[in-house]
Amino acid sequence: MSGTSMTPERLTKRLSRIFNEVFPSLDVAEAPGATMDNVAGWDSMATIMLVSQCEEDFGVKIGYDRIAETKSFADLFKLIEGLTR
């Protein structure tokens, strides 16, 4: 399954909204700089939540085997970009 391709700006916007849903204290504007180190409460459970939200929102299958390597907004961005291209 793959979604329709989208601009990097649009992907950033949608992914930022997902980050804000999972971390309400993280401002949408700050989301693109988010990493496991600089966001309070970002643990492996939060990564699972992010991944499952992205799967639903973008209509892609990321797979839970990628969780260990997903440590920042940029990591997720790259994963989704690859899956929706």
Partner: peptide, 14 residues
């Protein structure tokens, strides 16, 4: 099955 094998989740997150 991905959620089970990857994170031992008993059912899908949705």
């Amino acid at each position: 099955s991905s959620a089970w094998h990857g994170a031992k989740l008993p059912f899908a997150q949705d």
